[in-house]
Design a protein around this nucleic acid. Structure first.
Lengths: 137, 137
DNA sequence: GCACGACTTGGACTGATTCCAACTTTGTTG
DNA sequence: CAACAAAGTTGGAATCAGTCCAAGTCGTGC
């Protein structure tokens, strides 16, 4: 999954730098919703000289390519979700920012023409907001 | 609707200040999704000496009381939606931040126990991401 | 009308993210 | 394999949204 991501990058004319390799490596996994800072932290532990700017650049590129999803779940940091293939909902604790995936077999119904207001829709997401067990106390 | 919002505030022990009145007034409407800055701008035009901090305070209070919804649609500013009674989706342009309401008669299916991961869910939202006509160019 | 506590204020501060100009590296070409 | 150009990286400055705070103001109940 990860090597093929790097392949796809190269095929699209992106250079394979050690930085991109490391970021891809850090993001690998299934129920991952890391902030840019967490990605940086993981990247630094593998490649100490990597910079914050590069992590942000790479996350933007991967998002634009559709390889990861950029999530604005709470109003704090964006989170990045490498699971773009299996549709799923997100469950967010509004207090601490904790995120769970929900594999829920209900499709978001697609919109009719009138409802689209002339927009082209790229993706639809379902987010459940609440409070996690720890924060409920 | 607006006077009753002020009534509800007073009933809960909040003082009726001119600032709160003005913010409530600015937020009144049906398909409104203003940023804090836009609320401030509207408030200043009615009460020039109102401060940014007060607008933020009031928006937080109204959100906590459930009188408005706080939306994190794009990664930029939060937006505030006074329509809390009629369930609806949001349609967001990821380029310019434009928001439309979609009155769509499909409920978000509620989650089973296992899927809640021990969380208590307060609200569920559906967001459609895309590009608006202007930004598609 | 007074007093008390709730509310407001502006300016400093924080956290997240973007920008930038100089430097480095990759992939290509001869 | 050496050299080159373009793409990528860097760290630090800058921006943007939002929060915090101590001092001053004002709504409300008596």
């Amino acid at each position: 999954m990860n090597s093929s991501l790097l392949d796809r990058l190269r095929d699209r004319g992106y250079r394979l730098t050690s930085q991109r390799r490391v970021v891809a490596e850090v993001l690998d996994g299934d129920h991952i919703h890391m902030t840019a800072d967490e990605v940086l932290e993981g990247a630094v532990s593998r490649l100490p000289e990597i910079s914050r700017a590069t992590v942000y650049n790479t996350l933007r590129e991967l998002t634009e390519l559709g390889e990861i999803l950029e999530l604005n779940l709470d109003g704090r940091s964006k989170r990045y979700d490498p699971n773009v293939t299996r549709a799923h909902h997100h469950l967010v604790c509004d207090r601490c920012g904790l995120v769970f995936d929900v594999q829920f077999e209900v499709e978001v119904p697609s919109l009719g023409l009138a409802e689209k207001h002339g927009m082209s829709i790229r993706r639809s997401e379902i987010v459940h907001h609440g409070t996690c067990r720890t924060c409920t106390g």
